[in-house]
Nucleic acid binder design. Structure first.
Lengths: 250, 250
DNA sequence: CGTATGGTTGACCCCGCTCAATTGGTGTGG
DNA sequence: CCACACCAATTGAGCGGGGTCAACCATACG
């Protein structure tokens, strides 16, 4: 029910005038630092960041139809985006881990086209999009980074568009999570799912019963160890063979 | 086999120093003109456009893996983007009508992630992306337009991601074509498909036999008149009812 | 404990795929 | 102008992956 915009704990972090602390995974500060921008540019970027949260599981960061004014980078936790159709059934669009950016699909249209909800305890960095655009015009690295992020999401979206069977989709999903966790310094072999079977099913366009059955089959065949929401990848090679057609080169 | 980059007929259009002619549907000039930019800005935009074609059906505009350096707006004809999997089977990603922009998914990664092929006689306007970015930094309207186009494609891609039945997907596909044709001044009720049944099937994740059967069913139920590749929409309301869950508000 | 919620498992069935045969439109050569 | 070939599209028959429905199980929590 709480909206990100209304969260009382949301406030810009004060600039101490000497050290500017960005998240080590920050998609944006990296772009600037890499090009050796002077401090004034970083101050500008720093000033338009608003740290939000932590918010508890179930909190909406934005809702479908809300006016768009900011994108947000996940700092901690997992965010799920979804829409609900006329019959009230939920369709999951994506899961966002620390370092990943939500809200990009809202730029066109000026309103968020989907809901975003915290699956666990979540903190995000909120960037005013008008201000970010203004800054991007002065900083080619930031502009490039924004174009790249947007472009990347187009590619991601068409991955799931292919017609693959349940095994291929599950394998691709698990490997995608594994790689993304690994990139943030977590174990690529063992991790905990933050989303329910129903969420996974909706995202992969399967029934939740099918997700259960695939987990069982993968376990029986020695690909995985599954305990509740704990996943251990036992045979990455065979998993990758299954996922190959979905993930392609990437 | 011909590549857009190598086409000998591709050349910048000379600026006559007085009148600058853009396509009426140009996604980019509109952004500039709307904001009352002075002539110098338009000249800059004009100079980085390279008119390509006409090329005949079957000509590739770019191929998967080609280094990315330009996006292109379709001026005339239809372009199909697709990938081929390890087994050589083709998966269609999209169809692009006049006024629509191809190549955006290549910004991230620096290489085109898919093939683009002309389905009929096609001409495009090719925009060097580095130059376009540079110009976008000086023209907020152009930058906004680029962000918007990219964001729009994220949304489009997640439309097809939902799990819908054959009837819903076909209805949504036909209405989407209808609206896009209408937007360019063609009849929304009667139009010719430029793609084969197999192309439609691949795009919608169906078998081509299923596409045939849905056309037959829609015809029998009085929704459509189908003659070869000529389509006439007879009952738009019922078609929209079918497509509602796919297209949602948009 | 009892209850709620999420997950698993089984039985059954249907939508859409596969395979195969046929039709029809279009182009080509005699 | 017809005969033939070729390819796209249509139609039918049969089947299977995964959905639906329902029962059951397990962990979390009051």
């Amino acid at each position: 029910m709480n909206s990100m915009r209304l969260n009382p704990s949301a406030q810009p972090i004060a600039d101490d005038g000497d050290a500017l602390h960005f998240c080590s995974t920050c998609a944006f500060s990296a772009a600037c630092l890499a090009e050796g921008y002077d401090k004034s540019a970083l101050v500008e970027l720093h000033c338009l960041v608003e740290h939000v949260g932590p918010v508890t599981a179930g909190t909406h960061l934005f809702r479908e139809g809300d006016p768009f004014n900011a994108i947000a980078a996940v700092r901690a936790g997992t965010v799920k985006t979804y829409v609900t159709d006329a019959q009230g059934r939920e369709q999951v669009h994506g899961f966002f881990l620390p370092g990943e950016v939500i809200g990009l699909s809202a730029i066109h249209g000026g309103r968020y086209p989907c809901n975003a909800i915290a699956l666990d305890t979540v903190t995000v960095c909120r960037f005013s999009f008008p201000m970010l655009s203004l800054l991007a015009a002065k900083m080619p690295g930031l502009q490039r980074q924004l174009f790249s992020l947007l472009s990347q999401d187009i590619g991601k979206a068409s991955l799931l568009a292919g017609d693959f069977n349940a095994d291929e989709r599950m394998a691709a999903f698990l490997l995608s999570l594994s790689k993304r966790y690994a990139m943030r310094g977590f174990s690529p072999k063992r991790f905990a799912l933050t989303m329910s079977r129903a969420d996974i099913a909706s995202y992969l366009r399967l029934a939740s019963e099918t997700v259960s059955r695939v987990f069982r089959r993968f376990t029986d065949e020695g690909l995985l160890k599954v305990d509740r929401r704990e996943i251990e990848i036992l045979d990455r090679d065979r998993l990758e063979a299954l996922a190959r057609s979905v993930l392609r080169d990437q």
